[in-house]
Design a protein around this nucleic acid. Structure first.
Lengths: 127, 127
DNA sequence: AATATAGTTTACGTTAACGTAAAGGTAAAT
DNA sequence: ATTTACCTTTACGTTAACGTAAACTATATT
């Protein structure tokens, strides 16, 4: 087992270009193994990519997305750093709350607009 | 009444630069009245700005944000266009659902990471 | 053996969303 | 009257996140 993926495997699965994936590597967000020249992506590489893309969908910069992903593998022994990490988590959490609020409001607004549209259509029909 | 605002009023309120607001005007997303040279923003101008910024926080491009805001003032008499608008609403709604899912997952992940951090800190303390 | 397919590196190009600087206008306060 | 505080337009600059093209390698298929 231990599932491996080629670059185009992942590109297809997540609907991005290979260029994008290589770019993430250039920026230090991914570091796949090599078999000769070719990149071999492990299950955990795939997970990292998935998390990065999730961050991007939420409007994060690559840098921010990278920081979030790095949270997942603390690897830090230092108390201060762990505390700093927790602070960052809290900060990001607040952003997510705000975003969720934005989404709820926008959904509500969209329903309003839709209602108005449907009424307008109905009136047209009545003519 | 009828509340009016200067450009810096809005800039302060929404924590953006005046440059940003003027840029939105350049791109046709805002069209404030003038008093001499100066821009005068009405209540509805302010609302438009608020909606645009909300869209931006959700990762929309200026263009997309503009389209959404324009939904709020259909102004269309045409049945087909109303139907098209409803379709766009539905499409955007799907995106918001996806985003909300992303947020929930990330919040869950953050909680996990936090838990691990706290445990690590606890162990350190135990030493 | 030749063609197709998928991979590689290097490097310049593009676009959106402003930043920033220059050069100036207007109105109130000192 | 001149300093202060905002406002204006014009226009070039910047950055992130890739796109795109060129030139090359390796493997597999016909």
């Amino acid at each position: 087992m231990t599932e491996n993926y080629s670059i185009s495997d992942l590109a297809k699965e997540f609907d991005v270009t290979t260029r994008t994936i290589r770019h993430y590597e250039d920026e230090g967000l991914l570091l796949p193994a090599r078999k000769g020249q070719k990149r071999i992506y492990s299950k955990s590489d795939r997970t990292r990519l998935k998390l990065i893309l999730r961050g991007r969908r939420l409007g994060l910069s690559l840098d921010e997305a990278g920081q979030i992903v790095n949270m997942y593998t603390p690897g830090s022994d230092n108390l201060d750093q762990l505390q700093a990490l927790i602070d960052k988590i809290e900060e990001h959490r607040r952003k997510l709350y705000q975003q969720r609020k934005d989404i709820e409001m926008m959904l509500k607004d969209l329903s309003e607009v839709e209602k108005i549209c449907l009424q307008a259509i109905d009136e047209k029909r009545g003519t």
